[in-house]
């Protein structure tokens, strides 16, 4: 890069060159460099999970690399109880999602669209479960079920999951409702749509992405929950419960296969929604 030499009248002035050097280079890239290192740290266990899903462990524990094998991928359900646990987790996830999204969306509309006495109380009620450690939530529910003599099982797990998913659904849907322009509804009414039509033709379609997001969130919360479930499952074994048990006895590589699949599938869902959103916004 040639620095243009100024005309003769400024010959007394020292002309400085563009500063360069490794220190300057590093300083200007310090933040991206640190950021990428942190990302690397976040991905390190994922590499290990995927890598060790192709391991053929010598003993019960899958902590040391022995040799490459696709055995775990091809014989996924060979491990006793794992696929049953997986199936149960999926079922609980779906039911908990449906119930919490239904209840939560109603609450979100109430808080997001109305001013009423007790609104801040309702907000606090929604916030509290999110600010409570899972151990406390799990043990409180256990105290209730023990006190009421309710047998722990799939039903109590479902009740618990719906409870803690609910808050997250409310927050997600409420944020979407708050971002809507209220003039859109007024415009719809101005254009001869009655309340019902306005809701179903304008409001609901606009809130739908929030509801979809909340559903994905609720499902992943329920599917991955261990602590609350552990307190209230009785003899029911969900997938995280299975992994916990396996961690004591020895983890088969099939657990890593499920971990890898979860990662890939979730990533695919997120990328797909991003692509859809980008396409829509471009039109």
């Amino acid at each position: 890069m040639a620095v243009t030499t100024p005309s003769s009248d400024s010959s007394s002035m020292s002309v400085r060159r563009r500063p360069r050097g490794p220190v300057r280079w590093l300083r200007s890239r310090l933040i991206p460099l640190v950021g990428l290192l942190v990302l690397l740290y976040m991905f390190a266990p994922i590499f290990v999970v995927v890598l060790f899903s192709f391991n053929q462990p010598s003993g019960r524990f899958n902590y040391q690399w022995v040799h490459f094998s696709t055995n775990a991928w091809t014989n996924l359900c060979q491990v006793g109880g794992m696929c049953e646990a997986l199936r149960l987790s999926l079922l609980i996830g779906v039911v908990a999602t449906l119930c919490s999204v239904l209840l939560g969306t109603l609450v979100a509309f109430a808080i997001g669209r109305h001013r009423f006495r007790g609104r801040s109380g309702a907000n606090l009620m929604v916030f509290m479960p999110m600010a409570t450690p899972e151990v406390v939530m799990g043990s409180s529910l256990l105290a209730l079920f023990v006190g009421m003599n309710v047998a722990r099982g799939t039903g109590t797990v479902l009740v618990a999951h719906i409870m803690f998913c609910l808050s997250f659904v409310v927050v997600t849907v409420k944020a979407r409702i708050a971002s809507l322009d209220p003039r859109l509804e007024q415009a719809a009414m101005d254009l001869y749509a009655n309340e019902r039509t306005t809701f179903w033709k304008v409001t609901f379609p606009l809130v739908l992405p929030g509801i979809v997001g909340a559903s994905l969130l609720a499902f992943s919360l329920s599917f991955d929950d261990f602590i609350v479930t552990n307190f209230n499952s009785g003899s029911t074994v969900t997938f995280p419960m299975f992994v916990w048990g396996a961690a004591q006895r020895g983890t088969p590589p099939q657990v890593n296969v499920v971990g890898s699949l979860m990662f890939v599938l979730s990533l695919a869902v997120v990328i797909a929604t991003q692509v859809v959103r980008r396409r829509r916004s471009r039109v």
Binding site: M1, V3, P6, P19
Partner: peptide, 17 residues
């Protein structure tokens, strides 16, 4: 913003960089 080329002078001080 850093210039691609050229010089900026204030008074008799080159401040380009």
């Amino acid at each position: 913003e850093e210039p691609t080329a050229g010089t900026i002078v204030i008074g008799d001080q080159d401040v380009t960089w």
